[in-house]
Nucleic acid binder design. Structure first.
Lengths: 213, 213
DNA sequence: GTAGTCATGTAAGAGGTTACATGATTAG
DNA sequence: CTAATCATGTAACCTCTTACATGACTAC
């Protein structure tokens, strides 16, 4: 049910169309939550049907229209309730860690490619998130400005502090992943230099060939 | 398709029943990959149908039977192929980070409960994983012993090194999450002491009451 | 005998991915 | 006029969660 809450939370900053929400989910927040438009539009319709958001149909140009959604009191109540519930911790699924645990089935080359990709991915995330944190600190983020306008000044400090806190979590995580990937690349260099063989490096046997039986 | 590869990877250590695999997915590996039995049994049947694993029906007791699966050459080939492909990085979904970004909708109490839970969860993970790393280093892990028996001694070093590497990744991640949760708890204390109000602390207004319109 | 573990399934439904599909508007 | 952007959908398919279901075996 978190897509619903992610959408509600974004909409509390200001009324938006589905298209706007899609764009936010392609931006910096994508590392906390994301969804394709094929998931967002139907969910907005359901949220509307459930009475959590209100729609305003706005004309654009001559013929076209767009649907602008706003959170209503039920929506805010749903968000509060959500925050009061304790989220429990489910088992994770980490493809990259799973792969790395079985690199002996890979080749030095492929393992290195994967870890380099891992490092690059989290380096980009780190750079983007650091920039975004700087933008928040400088009050340069339009969505945050809108959000603050909705609330009394006394709450501004906490609102900003929580946004920064969340993104610092992403930064800490990215740094940890970069360090881990680097450690892996060093390990691969070390093992290869010392001539450690991998099963993955062996030429695959044709299952239908007549091997020594 | 990673459940399939997680199962194949476990089965390369030694032939196992679905039940055995379920148990491994409840143990330390649960933090890399996990699945309930309702997912495992049908997947094993599909893998069998796809010719990646072979079955041996073993009697147990008088009447009962069990199905013991073993990876065959096609299965090994599938694992190698999987390792050769570069896994791409998809947007993540992190409920805890999402919540934390909107703690202003929560109460100090509930936010603290959540972060304490976060810290406890990763502290347990950290302790368990450290213990497991120690067990691997001491060659005390039965599954790993079985795995090593399958392979020539020259490969042992790399196999062990990759297992340790993967679990050190989990440790690094757990440490990062613990530090983040602690930072959050400190932030909450600081904000509350300085009397910062939260929207979530305000009593909810009954949407149907006649408020000042 | 009975509780705990071993062992294996099915099924409904939620959530997510990928592809298909369409059309208006705006900036150059 | 043409490309990019704005805007909103549907549908098939896969994955995962949760619940329902069953029965044998083993240790006490």
């Amino acid at each position: 049910m978190s897509l619903r809450h992610a959408l509600l939370a974004l909409l509390t900053a200001e009324p938006m169309t589905g298209y706007d929400l899609v764009k936010y989910f392609d931006g910096t927040i994508a590392n906390m939550w994301s969804a394709p438009h094929s998931q967002i539009y139907p969910e907005l319709r359901r949220m509307e049907a459930d009475g959590l958001i209100d729609v305003r149909v706005v004309p654009r140009g001559e013929r076209a229209q767009k649907r602008e959604y706003a959170v209503n009191e039920n929506g805010v109540a749903a968000l509060r309730t959500w925050q009061q519930e304790l989220a429990d911790y489910q088992p994770e699924r980490d493809v990259y860690r799973l792969r790395s645990a079985h690199f002996e089935l890979s080749t030095y080359d492929a393992a290195r490619r994967q870890l380099t990709e891992h490092r690059n991915h989290y380096m980009k995330l780190l750079t983007d998130t650091r920039q975004f944190v700087a933008d928040i600190e400088a009050r340069r983020v339009p969505l945050l400005q809108q959000r603050l306008k909705q609330r009394p000044e006394g709450e501004h400090e906490a609102i900003i502090a929580f946004k920064l806190f969340a993104f610092r979590g992403e930064i800490t995580k990215a740094e940890a992943e970069i360090a881990w990937a680097q450690e892996g690349l060093d390990l691969l260099d070390d093992l290869e230099q010392r001539g450690a063989p991998l099963f993955g490096e062996e030429p695959a046997r044709d299952p239908w060939s007549l091997g020594p039986s």
